[in-house]
């Protein structure tokens, strides 16, 4: 039998919290292994008992791209800034897919793991965070397809892609996590979130330049448009990989600030609702 390691144990005080809860990110750090395990579980389980498996990570964006190509390129003849439409839309579908997958899984992460919440202690932030990060695998797979398309269409990325792709990827993760923190915490109490989410993502797709170029938005509305962080992300990706549009400017800065505000407010809201999760879920 192993004996207990003789070190001075830490003392924990359990008492009702009042007022704003501390973010307590140190606690989250202590549970970093659990985040890794949850990501690993989500990835392992995601395509289990499917015929096509991880191919779905390719099929989904490619099919969407083909549909967009037919609708917006062949039928509606939307301008794609002189870039072949398939690669123009696929470049945007990449971060968009990352965003919606993250948003969808993370918003449901608490309710779908409710027995973990009612039976064990761990920082609840682990769940939405793991869901968001788990989406990176699909993103990486789709990225390989994009590289293939760039070779085929002979598109040379700008040098800035080296830093810009990770940065804009991060921005879309921050945005997704921020929104998901709000929605997942609300979902614990009000399951309406599950019904609202499809509309939200659909609506969000319309106000994001995925299928069209952001140049169709007139100059005076650009500022309002930048309030949508995903617009900044999509434009950033196109600029870095396809060389279309303007380099990141104040509009992107606005987008970034907005998404950080969403994330911080989401963290505060989540942490304050956290204490009632086990009772209301």
């Amino acid at each position: 039998m192993n004996s207990i390691a003789k070190h001075e144990p830490t003392t924990v005080y359990i008492r009702p919290t009042s007022g704003l809860a501390a973010l307590n990110l140190k606690d989250l750090w202590n549970y970093r292994e659990l985040v890794v395990f949850m990501i690993w579980r989500d990835i392992k389980v995601r395509y289990k008992q499917t015929l096509l498996g991880a191919l779905w990570a390719v099929i989904q964006p490619v099919m969407t791209m083909l549909v967009f190509n037919f609708l917006f390129n062949n039928v509606a003849k939307v301008s794609s800034d002189g870039i072949p439409y398939p690669i123009f839309s696929f470049t945007a579908l990449l971060p968009w897919g990352l965003f919606t997958t993250a948003l969808n899984t993370a918003s449901r992460s608490l309710t779908s793991n409710h027995n973990m919440i009612t039976n064990t202690y761990f920082p609840r932030l682990v769940l939405p965070m793991a869901s968001v990060l788990g989406g990176l695998v699909d993103f990486a797979i789709a990225l390989v397809i994009l590289v293939g398309m760039m070779v085929y269409f002979k598109v040379v990325p700008t040098l800035s892609a080296i830093w810009a792709v990770p940065v804009f990827m991060l921005l879309s993760i921050i945005t997704a996590l921020g929104v998901a923190l709000w929605l997942s915490a609300i979902n614990v109490k009000y399951r309406d979130v599950g019904y609202a989410l499809p509309f939200l993502t659909q609506f969000w797709l319309f106000i994001t330049p995925v299928a069209y170029s952001s140049k169709v938005i007139s100059e005076k509305w650009q500022l309002v448009y930048a309030l949508n962080p995903m617009a900044g992300v999509v434009n950033g990706f196109r600029w870095a990989l396809l060389g279309s549009g303007n380099p990141p400017d104040t509009l992107v800065a606005i987008s970034s600030v907005i998404s950080i505000i969403i994330l911080l407010s989401g963290l505060v809201y989540f942490r304050n609702m956290e204490r009632t999760f086990a009772d209301t879920i």
């Binding site: 830490t10 924990v12 005080y13 359990i14 008492r15 009612t118 064990t120 204490r275």
Partner: peptide
């Protein structure tokens, strides 16, 4: 559940020395 920090007490304090 209170002792294992799954749910918060409405009043009172628990002092726990060690990993639960």
């Amino acid at each position: 559940k209170v002792l294992s920090r799954v749910t918060e007490p409405t009043a009172g304090t628990v002092t726990v020395r060690g990993r639960v």
